[in-house]
Design a protein around this nucleic acid. Sequence first.
DNA 1: AACGTTGCAGCAAGCGCTTTCTGCACCCAC
DNA 2: GTGGGTGCAGAAAGCGCTTGCTGCAACGTT
Lengths: 353, 353
Amino acid sequence: MTVTLADVAARAQVSPATVSRVLNGNYPVAASTRERVLKAVDELDYVLNGPASALAAATSDLVGILVNDIADPFFGIMASAIQSEIGGPGGRAGGERLAVVCNTGGSPERELTYLTLLQRQRAAAVVLTGGAVENEPHAAAVAAKLRKLTEAGTRVVLCGRPPTPDTRAIALAFDNRGGARQLTEHLIGLGHRRLGYIAGPRERTTTRHRLEGHRDALAAAGIEDDPRRTVHGHYDRRSGYEAALELLRRDPDLTAVVAANDSVALGACAALRESGLGVPRDISVAGFDDLPFSIDAVPSLTTVRLPLAEAGARAGRIAMGREEPPPGGIATVRGELMVRGSSGVPRAERAAR
Amino acid sequence: MTVTLADVAARAQVSPATVSRVLNGNYPVAASTRERVLKAVDELDYVLNGPASALAAATSDLVGILVNDIADPFFGIMASAIQSEIGGPGGRAGGERLAVVCNTGGSPERELTYLTLLQRQRAAAVVLTGGAVENEPHAAAVAAKLRKLTEAGTRVVLCGRPPTPDTRAIALAFDNRGGARQLTEHLIGLGHRRLGYIAGPRERTTTRHRLEGHRDALAAAGIEDDPRRTVHGHYDRRSGYEAALELLRRDPDLTAVVAANDSVALGACAALRESGLGVPRDISVAGFDDLPFSIDAVPSLTTVRLPLAEAGARAGRIAMGREEPPPGGIATVRGELMVRGSSGVPRAERAAR
DNA sequence: AACGTTGCAGCAAGCGCTTTCTGCACCCAC
DNA sequence: GTGGGTGCAGAAAGCGCTTGCTGCAACGTT
């Protein structure tokens, strides 16, 4: 029923081995023979059986990309960049690999199950993006899985995710801590002293690192870190909206709000505006990531730009073995402070001048 | 080196056949035996070899999701919904299927190659999202490919994409034409008579349908459709920015701009604002899709909400055979007009009152 | 002229699983 | 006590491909 290698071989009057070699192009085949085979392939509309060849060759052309939330452009941008380097059809890479993105939804179990599924498919490489969960048993389970994968020859790259010790995984980590620190320093430099912070979910490395950077800056400026000025939520707009209201309730005199990311910041802006506060006139707001829509917000968002596409592309190349991994298998990717319209000198400061 | 079924069988003192049956659960196995096998699986940390089982069983648990641009939330949201229904780990579905999203980048060739790759992997189902390219040879090639896929037993579902005749593909098409018409009717109802339109790329069905809806509304209101009031671009912010400037250059007296989608609309807003025009004071703007950020724009965007998540979920269920396909294999999904801050009564109209 | 070399094609042995068919107990009914 | 079920496990034949090895011309070398 379905066309097989043997059918092609028969038609081209050669052995199946020869057809296989023509298709894989890793063995000398006379030009005339090759042509005959290709003609037969074309005429029969033959499509290689992936599973069979993966089984025989003990490798596959599948590359997995794990993301926390595919509906979030933060991950979409990275995934897109990774995929374009992986090859997939038309990518820069030569071979045709099936780059597939798997949506974990931030769930540790799903993450693990996807890794198992990819292991089962004998994936050629796996790229994990985004922050990790800081839950000891889970982290250990993931580390163990990654170790197994690398041992089986699968290349593992972490993109925007902290290194996993005792694993041969390559890590390109974002300098969330440093970026957050710069951002808060910028606000402090403008004269802000009462800053609220809307953090992401607890137990995520990204959340912790950004929060630490914020606190570093406060500490360096000798500003007391009132725990009441920090609220935890999710990495989405809605969380930002609610958290901003909560912060305002706790301290109506806040002059700035730093958000865990841009979506959160935009939600916060909406809440502040609805509370009758002008941004940045009455209160400054800052985000993180610099997603495309941030520049379009009114006022445009002060934030930290993370080179998502560049990092993704690099991760993709490393996963394909087309770029040397960084020394030690670990590289830090820095962000860049983008000062825009949503941050300004606090009201009191202006009055004093 | 790697653990195989036979190893597990040896350890559990049963035949490989029994182990296979325990793992697949589609054949009676005595409880005591099953337990012994599972114990051995656990102890050896056995992971099934996907390619091998796919080869032997002539089926695989791979489900492909094709998207035009994974960095665009429009596709991200649909992909996420589809994936959650496909199962993947933790999804509602029982079986563990690997739902993979493939980024075509809007390129017809890549689309075709991905389909071949999925065919090669003997995918269980394929979901294609987003508008199709209206290029005759390409459309025919895709149709042929889809036919092959369905013939081979792969379920094919089109989500937010027009039906493909002569194919057994199920189609859930968005009513782009109707939505666009409603939107423009709304603006006309407010009193607008000089409307600019920023269209998407030519040759895409979505672009054409939305444009047709817009023109339908104009025609119904007896407004002449000046071709100079339509500019084509891409479905991104930047295009919107540039196109808006171009439209203004061509006719400074425009009172409204309708954009191909929300990102384009936001880009247009930015351009208008920078040109000194207030939205909606001087000029109204409308988008399409109602992506999450649209409500956050200032002013919030008047647009047409497309039930992306619902449609995606439904497509996913159909792909999994867990929901009956619509009669005739074709269903139309309607959008809903969302009137918000970016559209208002035109200036002249207000003055006249 | 005899003997390596080289270049290309075929043979055949798997890769690790699924599944049909066969086989063996064991139980029930007559 | 025998014949026919019934319930479970095993033997073995592939699934469609890759690849190490062998084979055989045709060529170059001394």
